[in-house]
């Protein structure tokens, strides 16, 4: 482009040589370069992904040969078993599983709303902890909690105490369930402030139970 302009200048230069020689345009046509710049800009904007994958940390118990009597005992009244089965269905029951006396089970789904939502059920059963956590969060928001170590400690221990009495969830993924279900239910643990949960294998009687419920 610049050459063309130069030539134009020199063409006309023939007539008014002195004047034109000084005025000859020094502008370079930038349009193609700008086009290219925007093309590259669009390309990089389109291809860049800013959202990084997120992670969910889980800790599994150390796999040692622990004898049955050394295992952590969980009070049956606080224990909720959640069995994940095929087709995104959940079977849950309260208390201990006992082959002689099958527990009363209920079905639930993974949806956030509705009657059989596992989210709602866990929230409800874990109300004790949830209320405590909510109360603390609320007072933090309203600025009622002083920024003193002992005050914060007291609130923390209040939540801890509630958690001790709160729900314990045993997650039991069935062989037919999908990884998606496991992540969903773990997610529910975070959302519903369930402090104590574990991923456990199904027992024989529970496998029967799943078969019968279908």
């Amino acid at each position: 482009m610049s050459e063309v302009q130069q030539q134009e200048g020199s063409d006309r230069g023939g007539k008014h040589k002195k004047v034109r020689a000084k005025k000859s345009s020094t502008h370079v046509d930038m349009t193609p370069m700008v086009d290219l710049a925007f093309l590259l800009l669009t390309f990089f904007i389109m291809t860049t992904t800013f959202s990084k994958p997120k992670t969910m940390d889980i800790t599994m118990p150390v796999k040692d040969n622990v004898e049955d009597k050394d295992r952590t005992k969980v009070p049956a009244s606080q224990t909720m078993s959640v069995i994940l089965t095929a087709d995104n269905k959940v079977i849950w029951y309260f208390g201990q599983e006992d082959p002689a006396q099958p527990p009363v089970t209920s079905m639930a789904t993974f949806s956030q709303t509705g009657e059989n939502s596992i989210h709602k059920i866990i929230l409800e059963k874990n109300a004790l902890v949830n209320n405590q956590v909510k109360a603390v969060e609320d007072s933090v928001k309203r600025g009622l909690i002083e920024d003193k170590e002992d005050v914060i400690k007291a609130h923390k221990s209040a939540v801890k105490n509630a958690e001790k009495k709160g729900l314990i969830v045993l997650i039991k993924p069935d062989e037919t369930s999908k990884y998606n279900n496991l992540v969903d239910i773990l997610d529910e643990m975070f959302v519903c402030n369930v402090a104590r949960y574990a991923i456990v294998d199904l027992s024989e009687s529970e496998k029967e139970l799943v078969k019968n419920t279908k």
Binding site: P53, K54, T55, M56, D57, I58, T59, M60, P61, V62, K63, L84, P173, D174, E175, T176, S177, K178, Y179, N180, N181, L182, V183, L186, D201
Partner: peptide
């Protein structure tokens, strides 16, 4: 859509290797 037995198996292999803390990418 990964099936649970495979996931459990992998987790158990990690536990055998004394890796008890890990992250699930979501």
């Amino acid at each position: 859509e990964a099936d649970i037995p495979t996931i459990k198996r992998v987790i158990s292999i990690l536990q055998d290797n004394k890796a008890n803390r890990f992250a699930l990418i979501t």
